[in-house]
Design a binder for these strands. Structure first.
Length: 775
DNA sequence: GAGCACTGC
């Protein structure tokens, strides 16, 4: 045991923070107690963990590529055309889109799809359709006219009031942009406007911060998260006749939960919906059909299983790609990559750009340098080489360059990318792909409450996906910098998110939707029992479930708040008179949940110094949380040019605007949930610096959600986590970087090169014990 | 002295 003595609140309150799971009682400390081995083991166990991969059930594949950026002009024409009565414009548009629809591969499968779902019982259709098959836009249009897709007035129980069941089709997407653009496109194809509730229309969408559901909209595009929220109010999805779950192969946590809830509705039988059946369509690019099939088998009435579960494959379109592997495993991947690129450049004709997949920014910048140096020695009869990096941290302008054709004639573009180019974006002009076979993957370690971000071999499905990037515009070639045997040994697909992430939010979602026994909730890939138990213990500490695991009133409120459970707990604590800092908590939470950091990372030496000075007025010595608070308050007090202000402070404008969006939404929800009494005055409010007393209250309030993410200063100047005794260093991006404080609280804990604490605040050790006491 | 990529309520 190390010399530091963590607060031991359990001695004072032996039964506090203990929860009954099955026939055992587990306390927070049981989970957070220091491990028997020494803390140096942490990094080792992480490395081991990332390689311990179990069975996989799906293959991931192209996703964002299926949704092309879409022109909205024709929709506007349609709308104006409609308001003037029918016009030639509208007719031409409809005829044009019908013509396009007919060329889609799915067109030939219409009857099969209708037939698979034509019965009077619950039915499931699994539809495997590759990129470009048209499944996302056409399937809802094929189904909404079916006789079973009607509204029914029924009594769910005898003597109960009549309710309306069915009539609508929900189609879920993992991303907002997909839901909105698909809705836009389908509304054009059917010729009704996409508008708010005051107009009639067939198609609508509903995503966070944006809802367009016309009157009578039968086809509704939703994000998975939105449908999960609807499940809180409507557990049997009674407004829908069919739910289409698209892009299932991405295996987000939300989609896994959604599939579980759908299975439960199907298992319950049509009676819970007053006899109105629910049709479920599972759509995926390249999912493992067997896994999806066996998951849903058994949820349907036994006798009719065979008839009510159907599988359809729809072919996509792709040019052939010739794949080659290394004969032997190579020692220096960076070196081979550069050599391979020059070999392609010397041997393959133009046009044909090269796309190389590397694992991270560092490797990309190193390879770029080496290629550029070598390129100067090329003979003049060879085309010129233009090297372009492509990774997420790159500025938008920097990224854009990688998508443009090379401006000089007689030259070849070489794009060096992370896995951003695997699914998220498509680089045009690529005919040659070089794949190093690695990618950085984030994985959560429930035992120590830490994430890791480490390079590891990609999955087979990723490798295939990377290869496919060479065949978008014509036949191509793919060079894998590993042997065919190593390819065969890759695991089939990436771990689904639910096995890589913290399941705290997922467990709260289940509890709030009436699942008492979360360990037996149907999931395609159930997380380890320990991960779920850990989440239950933590929910108990947060006050979301009581001693026997039943959801509390507070827990129900937490589930309705659109932020992670820990932060919901902070918001609930902030309402208490002893803290009284709901508005401040909302401001901070808005800044940390708006996506990437609102502060841009500065790489150059000069830029860093300059930024240091311009950000000085925002920085608080108490740490990052209060720096965020000051920043959003100064921003919203800014009366003149907010854009200029962000530029001066090197703040990401897009994220800052999103933070303001979230802030507005959270304020609204907090009023509705009675966490706030009244709406605060409109912006801009004059900025008044926070008093040290208020600052202390806010940090003590955040400890109510993050008491277990704390560390104490060791004699040698390093930090040791209070629970678990793991060494942790303050991340260089923190305002507290390099400083020594008695104790720290951190919101994120990530292992990259070493164990880093992010979003750090300076606290007093005594506050930790206080936060763990009776609430 | 640091940064795979996303996404959602």
């Amino acid at each position: 045991m190390a010399s530091h003595k963590p607060p031991r609140p359990r001695k004072q309150h032996p039964r506090k923070n203990a929860i009954a799971i099955g026939n055992r009682t587990i306390s927070l400390e049981d989970y957070l107690a220091p491990p028997r081995s020494k803390s140096v083991e942490v990094s080792k166990s992480i490395h081991r963990g990332t390689e311990e991969h179990e069975k996989q059930s799906t293959e991931s594949s192209d996703t964002a590529g299926t949704i092309a950026p879409h022109s909205f002009t024709s929709a506007r024409k349609l709308r104006s055309g409609q308001s003037q009565g029918s016009s030639r414009h509208l007719r031409d548009n409809l005829q044009a889109s019908l013509k396009t629809q007919k060329t889609l591969p799915i067109w030939n499968y219409q009857d099969h799809i209708r037939e698979a779902l034509h019965g009077s019982e619950n039915e499931v259709l699994v539809l495997i359709g590759e990129t470009g098959s048209g499944k996302s836009t056409q399937v809802p249009q094929i189904l909404y006219k079916e006789p079973w897709c009607k509204r029914h007035k029924v009594r769910v129980r005898e003597n109960s009031d009549e309710v309306t069941v069915g009539g609508n089709i929900a189609i879920t997407q993992p991303r907002r942009v997909a839901a909105t653009t698909l809705a836009q496109r389908v509304s054009e194809e059917v010729g009704t406007p996409l508008s708010n509730h005051s107009y009639e229309g067939l198609v609508g969408y509903s995503v966070r911060f944006d809802h367009k559901i016309p009157k009578g909209a039968k086809i509704r595009f939703l994000t998975e998260g939105t449908l999960l929220q609807e499940l809180l109010r409507d557990p049997f999805l009674r407004q829908y006749s069919a739910v289409i779950v698209d892009e299932v192969h991405e295996r987000s946590i939300d989609v896994d939960l959604l599939l579980g809830f759908l299975k439960q509705i199907l298992t319950a039988g049509a009676s819970v919906r007053g006899g109105v059946p629910l049709k479920v369509v599972i759509m995926s690019a390249t999912a493992d059909v067997e896994a999806v099939k066996s998951f849903f088998e058994g949820s349907l009435a036994d006798a009719s299983v065979r008839e009510s579960l159907h599988v359809l494959h729809i072919q996509g379109r792709q040019f052939p790609v010739q794949v080659s592997h290394e004969a032997q495993a190579i020692a220096d991947v960076q070196d081979s990559l550069v050599k391979r690129i020059f070999k392609i450049h010397a041997e393959e004709p133009l046009p044909g750009d090269v796309l190389a997949f590397l694992s991270g920014q560092e490797e990309i910048e190193a390879a770029k340098k080496s290629i550029e140096e070598h390129a100067t020695t090329l003979p003049s009869n060879l085309p010129k080489i233009k090297v372009l990096p492509l990774y997420g941290q790159l500025s938008l302008e920097g990224q854009r360059e990688a998508f443009l054709p090379v401006s000089e004639s007689f030259s070849r573009k070489v794009v060096l990318a992370t896995n951003i180019a695997e699914t998220s974006v498509t680089v045009p002009g690529v005919r040659y792909v070089v794949d190093c076979g690695k990618a950085k993957v984030k994985q959560f370690r429930p035992r120590i409450g830490m994430e890791s971000l480490l390079a590891k071999p990609i999955s087979k499905s990723s490798a295939v996906q990377r290869t496919g990037r060479a065949g978008r515009e014509g036949p191509g070639k793919c060079f894998r910098l590993y042997t065919e045997a190593s390819f065969e040994n890759l695991q089939k697909a990436d771990l689904p998110e639910i096995l890589r992430n913290d399941v705290l939010g997922a467990v709260l979602t289940m509890k709030a939707r009436g699942i008492h026994d979360v360990l037996s909730f149907p999931l395609m890939d159930p997380p380890e029992r320990e991960a779920i138990e850990k989440a239950l213990v933590q929910l108990h500490f947060l006050g979301a479930v009581d001693d026997d695991g039943t959801i509390t009133l507070a827990g129900k409120v937490m589930a309705r708040l659109p932020v992670p459970a820990t932060l919901s707990a902070v918001l609930l604590a902030a309402r208490r008179s002893s803290f009284d800092c709901v508005l401040e908590a909302i401001d901070i939470i808005s800044c940390i949940t708006c996506g990437e950091d609102i502060f841009l990372t500065i790489t150059s030496e000069e830029g860093r110094e300059e930024t240091e000075i311009s950000r000085q007025e925002l920085q608080r010595r108490e740490g990052d949380l209060l720096t965020y608070l000051t920043t959003i308050r100064v921003y919203s007090a800014e009366n003149s040019d907010r854009t200029q202000w962000c530029k001066r402070k090197k703040i990401n404008i897009r994220n800052m605007k999103q933070a303001m969006n979230i802030r507005r939404q959270l304020r609204g929800i907090c009023i509705k949930e009675k966490l706030l009494d009244e709406a605060p005055g409109p912006d801009p409010q004059p900025f008044t610096p926070l008093s040290p007393e208020k600052a202390e209250l806010i940090l003590r309030c955040f400890l109510r959600g993050f008491a277990y993410k704390t560390a104490l200063l060791a004699p040698d100047g390093s930090f040791m986590t209070v629970y678990g005794k793991h060494p942790v260093a303050i991340h260089p991006g923190s305002v507290l970087y390099g400083q020594k404080k008695e104790a720290i609280m951190f919101l994120d804990h990530v292992f990259t090169n070493k164990s880093y604490a992010k979003k750090v605040s300076a606290i007093q050790a005594s506050w930790i014990a206080e936060a763990l006491e009776v609430k």
